[in-house]
Every structure is written in C-alpha cells, then in structure tokens.
Design a protein around this nucleic acid. Structure first.
Lengths: 248, 248
DNA sequence: AAGTGGTCTAGACCACGTA
DNA sequence: ACGTGGTCTAGACCACTTG
C-alpha cells in the first residue's frame, strides 16, 4: 500500500482500504453473517497501521456494511438477523407496540422492463424482469400491496415455491432470500413517496373502498457500489399505520 | 479530564468531551455560524489529547452539529447557509431541477396546547402555543399547507411582522429565524407520514378538488439534546412533487 | 510563515468473549 | 490466557487558508 500525494488520483489510505474491503464484500469473499479478518490481520495484509484499517472499518460500519462485536470480531451485516431484518420497513402502528408483517404472495411472473423501469434498474429497455406481487398483513389485516420487479438475470431459477418456502417456512424476508440464494446483499434504498387513491386493483386487496387515500411508495434497492437490484411500488393503507422518517 | 473505568457511570473521554462541547453549543457559548476553538485549544482546555478531541468533533460533525472547513476551523452549523437552509425539506419535482419554495403566511395567532400536542412538545397541557399557518409555493403554485405550533415561552415577542420580514425580506427560513432571533437551533426532526384527502380547508388553499389525495406529514423538530421545539402538520399536493427518503 | 483541519503511525492499555 | 474490538496518547507530516 502506497501513498502518493503527487498523483492526480490520490486517495487517503483509509479510503483505499475501504474500497478493498468493499470489493471483498461485493465479490463474496466474506459472505453475510461471517467474520472478516481481524484489524491486525488486515493491517498486515494491506501493509498499513491498525489505526488506518480501523478508520476504514469505522466508516463501513456506519454505512451498515459491517457490524462490530467486541471481543468476537467484525462481521458482514445480514438481513437474516432478527434485529435488522426489517431495517427498511418504516411502518409503525399508530397505537401500541411495533408489529411485523406476514407476506401473502398473490402473483409471480415474468415480463419486460419498460423504459422508466429499465432506467431505474440500469438495464436495457425490454430486458427480462421477474414480477412479484404480494400483500403485507399486520395482525392478519392487509396494509400494503407490493408490486416488485427485478432483473431476471440476477435471479436465475427463482420460483414461486422457493419464495413461499423461504418467506413462510423460514420466516425470511425477500432481502434475506436474495442474500442466501443469490449472494446479493441489499445495503441501501431510495424511496419516493406520493399520495394516491385506491383503485379497482388495490382497493379489494387492501380491503378499503375505491377512492380511499393511500401512500404510494416507489423504492429502488441497491447492493454494494450503488448497484440497483430491485424496484418496487407499494400501496399502503395508513388508517392504522404511519411511515416514519428521521431527519438529521 | 479524568478517566475512571472503575466508576459506575464511566464514559469514554471522547464522549465526555462531546457532551462538554454540546453543552457549549446549547448554552450559546458559540453561536451558529461562528468558529469553535481549534482542536489543539480544546485539547489544552479539557486536558486530553488532540486525537480525543478530534474523535468527539468527528461525531458532532456527523450529527450535523458542526461543520469543518480545512485550514479555517470548525464552525457551528446554521440554517442561514444557503447550502443547508432546506436540509429538512424532502420535496422534489417529479421532473426537472430542484426548486425551493416561497412562503406565504396566512395566519398568525395563539392558542393552548391540547393533550397530544403537549405530549409532543413536552409542555404542560393547556400551556400557550404560537400558531402559524402558511402555504409553500413552488414556481408560484401552492403545494404545501402548514399548520405550525411552538411553545409561546420559547418565542417571546414574536409577531407576524417579524416573521414576514425575516422570511420575505431576508429570504430566511423559519429555522433560521429561530436561530437568529431566539438562539434556538433545530438539529433534527421526526416525521410521521400518512395519506389523506383534501378537505374544505386544505383544498382551496392548495387549489385542488375536495377529495384529492394529499400527503399528511406530522413533524416534531428538536434542538440539542432532543429538546422538542416545534410541531407542524403539513398537507402536500404530490401531483408534481414527491417526498424523497434515503434508507441506509 | 503561521495556524487550522486531515492523515497516518506506533504503542499502550482496557473491556469483552472464548477456551 | 489469549485474541478481538475500544480507547487514548504523542508525534510526524500533509493540505488548505490567511496574513
């Protein structure tokens, strides 16, 4: 590892280490849930001081790529942990304790990406996508209707049965399925929220009258290096649940 | 500055420094926009190493309490900066470049906090609040209707004229007014988002039909140490604008 | 030239988890 | 007892801003 302030594309050492570790994560050298080498070990490997490795890891921890466990090591973050499985679900009940949803899948198919979707997923317009539709039920009542689409190239051999098995039998989320079956880890997402009215499709699924107010959320989920993986559109009945956002 | 691992209420040194600096900020020792003492200076003052002060400041920078400027110093963050004035406004146009709103105030009054509001603002139920109503216009068109309430105790001597002058003449936001006139700095906020329908009050103000879909956002804004300062409810027409949220 | 933040190192010691 | 992450120090040098 060299430092060369004169070079045009100079980067701080800890930045370079950060990218090397991220590359290892993206390439699957250290799978989700597993420990990465110790700070001393990485310092030896990259020929820098332990403090520099530490600063790189510090930032990756803040970005939720890694989690530290004192005395045990540093681990690749995963959606398989109970604690972080619903990290991206910002829905909370208006009253009472937090609840977690049950997924009921109502559609599984394939289609082609139209221009807007292709742009969001960084794929060629017309390329194949997997289409999932489901309803999220909280305490047995439908609250969210999801239309989810991913490049079929990323999910070779996916089937309705596989999804049902993972989600129902193993109590997993879709994001933990991407991890365990396809070595794709979701690390961030962007959401665009609008107001909408329930229509002929969403109203019966959510058990509300046509014309009822709904939240409409369009989400793109990313893996390492901002690689887009999944697009989804969610329609949410906010009679008993609200979307929570923390601004800093 | 002492370290005492045996003590029950032991805190890392950098945590203690962080709190000391935060106290200085909350007490107005270093007002928004001004520089705090240099890292070496603070290290001398608190009898710790420069590295420890640096770690404390690092975290305060990530929490948007402070901003660093290499070669110049570390400064107290402020809403008076053009760059950060609209840090809490997550509305973007569906098409085209980002736009910033013009405030049109349509109501100024006083009232009493009912139980839910009192709880949110951590004040006694029935205590006095200032009530502001306004419309935010983007490109001359109404998009947001705000109902804003603050403890009157925090805003002694506030008047309709003062607000209009600050916001219109000086192109300031409400949060920059709180800073400059009342030494209250907003550092974070929490939002609860629901879907709603335009009613007799909001529809004419937003120039939409009654029953049109709107976002309804309830926000509580906080100063240092999570002290609640302001409550507001916003009704938003999302025909041409969306709410953006980044999940990490 | 002097002062500020930004990076990097080497080494010490503490706290936690496991064997 | 040992290895891991967590804290703290002291000092060197770089990069940016100002006088």
């Amino acid at each position: 590892m060299k430092k060369d302030p004169a070079s045009a594309n100079f980067l701080p050492l800890y930045e370079q280490i950060k990218r090397l570790i991220t590359r290892g994560l993206a390439e699957g050298e250290w799978p989700p849930g597993e420990a990465i080498p110790s700070e001393m070990e990485l310092a030896r490997r990259y020929q820098v001081s332990q403090g520099t490795v530490r600063k790189a890891i510090d930032e990756l921890v803040k970005e939720n790529y890694l989690v530290r466990r004192q005395g045990k090591g540093t681990f690749v973050a995963t959606h398989a942990d109970d604690g972080t499985a619903y990290r991206f679900l910002h829905l909370f009940p208006l009253e009472g304790e937090r609840e977690y949803p049950h997924s009921r899948f109502i559609g599984f198919g394939r289609g082609k990406a139209d221009a807007p979707l292709a742009k969001r997923l960084s794929v060629r317009p017309g390329s194949g996508v997997v289409i999932l539709r489901r309803v999220l039920e909280f305490s047995g009542k439908p609250v969210v209707y999801d239309d989810i689409r991913l490049p079929v190239a990323l999910l070779k051999g996916i089937s309705s049965a596989m999804i049902e098995d993972h989600v129902n039998a193993h109590k997993g989320t879709l994001y933990s399925l991407y991890e365990t079956r396809y070595a794709i880890r979701i690390v961030s997402a962007q959401e665009r929220i609008c107001a909408a009215l329930a229509d002929e499709i969403s109203a019966p699924l959510l058990n509300v009258a046509i014309g009822s107010p709904l939240l409409c959320i369009e989400r793109v989920a990313f893996s390492y290096n901002l690689q887009p993986v999944e697009w989804r559109k969610s329609y949410i009945n906010t009679e008993n649940y609200y979307y929570f956002d923390e601004l800093n």
